[in-house]
């Protein structure tokens, strides 16, 4: 009796906790609302199974608990019942899988009008790059990477001259504009993760990975690293700000291109040389 009640309490407690839990997903800020929908669908289907099986167990424990003189039934198998159960399970599983695959298809198919930006992870900070007016990224290489050229831009690539280099951990995105995030890592695995966007993807040194999204509301969101990347993993934070057009343009105009940065460095160096000569 106590055991049946105990399990019933576990069941009721679980359901109540689910309903009244103060912890639930963050308000969404991207187009991936259908990921939330698939989660909800999975909750409903699996929740129903959980409740049904648990109630059945509780009933059995209550009803068939040992008493003097009780004799168990002898029933090796019941093929018909098992075929039924298997079929129903298969249908339930398919009902979860099919929407999942459809949404995944969306997730891996980047729309053509998506604009690109690059997020670069290193232990333990974020930097970003925009392709500039020509819409093309200049080539980069690890060999060229040094304190003077933290992005490893190659100086003679014309595509790279107008690349906007953002050497701080704040990135701005334009609301309602589909965006393809190109992800690179300088050292170990990282993962670009903004909880409100739902989307995430690992950054793998040696290759460029990607995902896409459309921000649907303005605001400031935290970027976290979601792949263990060493002792500073938890401190690898950044910010992404979703702007309306006007604010976005203003922010963008404050950013420097590669050519500008090179020019700046050259002038600075000249001044230093002049000072030194004086």
């Amino acid at each position: 009796m106590i055991v049946a009640i105990g399990l019933l309490v576990v069941l009721v407690g679980t359901v109540l906790f689910h309903v009244y839990s103060p912890w639930w997903w963050t308000p969404i800020a991207s187009n991936w609302g259908n990921m939330d929908d698939t989660i909800l669908l999975t909750f409903w289907i699996t929740g129903a199974v959980f409740i049904a099986v648990m109630l059945f167990m509780v009933y059995c424990i209550y009803k068939f608990r040992h008493k003097e003189g009780r004799v168990a039934h002898y029933e090796p198998e019941n093929t018909k019942l098992e075929v039924w159960l298997t079929s129903i399970t298969a249908v339930g599983v398919a009902a979860m899988l099919a929407p999942g695959l459809i949404v995944w298809n969306d997730y891996v198919t980047v729309p053509e009008d998506a604009v690109e930006f690059e997020a670069i992870g290193q232990q333990w900070s974020w930097t970003f790059r925009l392709p500039g007016e020509d819409g093309k990224f200049g080539t980069v290489s690890m060999k060229d990477m040094n304190p003077d050229n933290p992005f490893g831009m190659s100086a003679d690539d014309p595509n790279g001259q107008d690349d906007v280099l953002i050497e701080e951990d704040e990135m701005h995105l334009l609301k309602d504009q589909p965006i393809k995030a190109l992800l690179r890592s300088v050292d170990v695995l990282h993962d670009f993760y903004v909880p409100q966007f739902r989307a995430k993807m690992d950054m793998v040194p040696g290759t460029v990975t990607y995902f896409w999204l459309t921000p649907i509301r303005t605001g400031e969101f935290e970027i976290l690293c979601a792949e263990l990347c060493g002792v500073g993993h938890h401190a690898m934070r950044g910010t992404v700000v979703v702007d309306e057009q006007e604010a976005y343009d203003e922010w963008l105009s404050d950013q420097a291109t590669y050519a500008e940065l090179v020019e700046e460095a050259r002038i600075r160096k000249e001044n230093e040389t002049r000072l030194a000569m004086n």
């Binding site: 999975t42 648990m54 997730y107 792949e227």
Partner: peptide
Amino acid sequence: INGGITGLFLGNVTVDVPLSDT
């Protein structure tokens, strides 16, 4: 049963995206 059910979340590729590494 409880843990198996949450496996259905994580195994289903789309649902895994927001939940992975959490």
